[in-house]
Amino acid sequence: MVYSLRCKVIVSGNARGMILATNQPINFLSSVDHSTGMIIDKNHDLCGHFLKNRVLVFPYAVGSSVGSYSIFALKSNGVSPLGIICTSKTDITTASGCAIADIPLLELYTDQEIPEFQKNVEGIIDGNSGVLQIKRI
């Protein structure tokens, strides 16, 4: 089964990887280990998961304005997501961090709904036409 979802392009580019999804916002400064890309906030439902090589699907970033540098550091350290989808209003921290780190960033249009995620789901970001494909493998 392949779903195609329409998105607004914030930072263009293409990416393909296994989806890592959460309904909780992320504080990129305090909740992520910048050298390993692991989510370390024990109050976060992705605690223990790694961002590396994933397509991160989350609502928006919260907290420190330095989170934009954190996204850049994740990329510099080779542990960043391949692409990011914001399911709510894209925040300035994520947008500027992705712009500088060249990480494709899309925002799901409000009339589009992501199906309930199962395990082993691949995300294919077309950051030129603004489409997210979701594929179970």
């Binding site: 540098y69 300035i92 500027s96």
Partner: peptide
């Protein structure tokens, strides 16, 4: 706006 380090 609530700017980030890099946007500011």
């Amino acid at each position: 706006n609530k700017e980030s380090s890099l946007s500011a």
